Simulated assay, not measured.
Amino acid sequence: MQKKIYLAGPDVFLSNARDILGQKADMVRAAGFIPLCPGDLEVPPSDTKKGLGLAISAINEGMMRDADAVIANLTPFRGVAADVGTSFELGFMCALGKVVYGYTNVETDHFKRCADFYGGALTRSPDGRIRGPDGLSIEDFDMVDNLMLDGGIESRGGIFVVGNASEDALYTDMQAFAECLRLMASRYAS
């Protein structure tokens, strides 16, 4: 039976979202899997914006429950870390005991991105933690993103692929996604 792969990520916010998700879905099919993409299913009408949002959330959760695995696009989105919705989806899939793989198109690790956010104005506090000028500590674990994302993937035998796309292709470059897909296909072939 073909495995179903849920495609998580901020791709749904792109102006060319259907094209990008369509390309990824084609790649998933070519690798022998069934793609499950947010936005693929029709959302029932709602009288309120909140109702519409809740309907979309319910549909996505249903797709994740139906999936065997997830490939999550954890490229930093609107800040120094992965998209919050994608982070939720990754955690949801971890909690369900599904196979979880992730990728980013940004080579710089989480600590460096946070240091850049603060313009390098970091200090070491008496408790030994590195802190920004606002007093908040910064994770320094040589990880791609927040330790819970890296840990969630690795503790379940998944892989976090790190790409290095150009700034203008952060959300459209497919190399790290293709590598994730290749590694997942190899896992299921074993």
Rank of each mutant, 00 (worst) to 15 (best):
M1P: 13
Q2Y: 12
K3Y: 08
I5H: 04
L7A: 06
L7K: 00
D11H: 04
F13G: 00
L14M: 03
N16C: 14
N16I: 14
I20K: 13
L21D: 12
K24F: 03
A25H: 06
D26C: 08
C37Y: 02
G39N: 10
D40Q: 15
P44T: 15
P44E: 15
K50R: 13
K50G: 08
G51C: 07
G51L: 06
L54P: 04
A55Q: 05
I56V: 04
I56S: 01
S57T: 14
S57H: 09
A58Y: 06
I59H: 01
N60C: 11
M63L: 14
M63Q: 15
M64I: 00
R65G: 06
A72E: 03
A72D: 01
N73M: 07
P76M: 10
P76S: 10
G79H: 07
A81K: 14
A81Y: 15
D83L: 01
T86W: 03
S87R: 10
F88V: 00
E89A: 09
M93A: 07
L96N: 11
L96A: 12
L96K: 14
Y101T: 02
Y103A: 00
E107K: 12
H110W: 07
C114H: 07
D116C: 07
Y118E: 04
G119M: 03
R124T: 14
L136G: 09
S137W: 15
S137C: 13
I138K: 04
F141S: 12
M148K: 03
E154R: 13
S155A: 15
S155C: 15
G158V: 13
F160V: 06
V162P: 02
G163E: 01
G163D: 01
N164V: 04
E167Y: 15
D168K: 02
T172D: 08
Q175L: 13
Q175A: 15
F177G: 00
C180V: 08
L183V: 04
